[in-house]
């Protein structure tokens, strides 16, 4: 099969898989599936800078929060539809990513990890200490309009499920196309060897900046979705360091730098977290302990993630060798 046909086949299988959850009778189950796919979407967004570009961001909650707060604020204060607010949030997040990333990208990668961590923390503290406009630690509620799809809300969970499937498809396509584009090749080269990339005429700062901004914009759109889905946002939900870590871990565990790895990471980790939470009877901290442990195990066993393990298994069992599934 040509890569395109293979991509098409995988895509069709995914679409089929995405129809199935609609058959579930329980709105609760559909909510869990929707959230899992949202995390998949976020991991794919993170993948652009963290996986493909190889720059460890530990502050993606900041972009998620910017997206949620921007659309909610515009909606609550000015009646702007969150569909438009989504773009405003994305633009704002891209700007923030540029401001955080620019000074760091000239330096070693650890600075970027630190700066993203610090920036997200500053943002959280700032929002918690805001009172009127952003609602401080208690957060903001989205005005309830019930069935108003043009205002990005609906009483039926299927609405949100459909939206998240579309967003996920867009994120997958962006990752797929990026890996085949000039920018994608540049980013992978930079991740491998910055000096060698420089010698081939690649503008390192510009490439990283483009990736960081794209990644932040997509993440912010996820924040808007979350705000509309839950109808409520607060700093500890959308700006927490745990969220930043979760997003990164899903992508890394699944397989950073690949198209399907990040989604796989979310599909594995969210249910695993749910199961662990129940098995351990709600011990506080057990879920995040699992994230930390998985991250360490993956980095020691197979830094390329579960996606790679599955691919190796597939190849070993005598299935036709695929070239460059990445």
């Amino acid at each position: 099969m040509t890569p395109l046909a293979r991509g098409g086949a995988v895509g069709a299988a995914l679409v089929a898989a995405m129809v199935v959850p609609l058959a579930t009778p329980s709105p609760y189950a559909l909510s869990i599936v929707t959230l899992t796919l949202l995390y998949g979407y976020l991991a794919l967004s993170w993948n652009i800078i963290g996986g493909i570009g190889g720059q460890l961001s530990l502050g993606h909650a900041a972009y998620f929060g910017i997206g949620g707060y921007a659309s909610t604020l515009l909606f609550v204060q000015f009646g702007v539809s969150p569909w438009f607010g989504m773009f405003a949030g994305a633009a704002l997040a891209a700007l923030a990513a540029a401001l955080i990333g620019y000074p760091c990208f000239r330096l070693r990668g650890a600075y970027f990890a630190l700066a993203t961590l610090a920036a997200a923390m500053i943002l959280k503290i700032a929002v918690e200490n805001s009172h009127g406009l952003l609602g401080g630690p208690r957060g903001l509620e989205v005005t309830l309009l019930r069935d108003a799809p043009l205002q990005f809300q609906h009483t039926r969970k299927e609405f949100y499920y459909a939206v998240v499937v579309v967003m996920l498809t867009i994120a997958l396509s962006i990752n797929y196309l990026l890996l085949r584009s000039r920018l994608g090749f540049h980013l992978v080269a930079i991740r491998n060897d910055q000096d060698a990339a420089l010698a081939l005429g690649i503008d390192i700062t510009r490439s990283k900046l483009a990736a960081a901004m794209l990644s932040a914009a997509l993440t912010a759109a996820g924040g808007t979705f979350y705000a509309q889905f839950v109808m409520f946002i607060s700093p500890d939900k959308v700006l927490s360091a745990n969220l930043s870590v979760q997003i990164a871990v899903m992508c890394i565990v699944g397989g950073r730098g690949t198209v399907f790895g990040p989604l796989l990471g979310a599909l594995l980790l969210l249910p695993a977290e749910e199961i662990a939470r129940r098995a351990l009877g709600g011990i506080v901290g057990a879920d995040m302990m699992l994230y930390g442990l998985l991250l360490m195990i993956v980095m020691r066993r197979e830094p390329r993630g579960v996606q790679r393990i599955l691919r190796d298994l597939w190849n070993r069992t005598g299935a036709p060798r695929s070239v460059n599934a990445g």
């Binding site: 460890l56 990164a248 871990v249 506080v284 901290g285 994230y291 930390g292 442990l293």
Partner: peptide, 16 residues
């Protein structure tokens, strides 16, 4: 990345 994992793990281990 590994030490990030260690960080998350230790914090939550002590929480438990």
């Amino acid at each position: 990345i590994f030490t990030t994992g260690l960080w998350i793990f230790l914090d939550n281990l002590f929480l438990v």
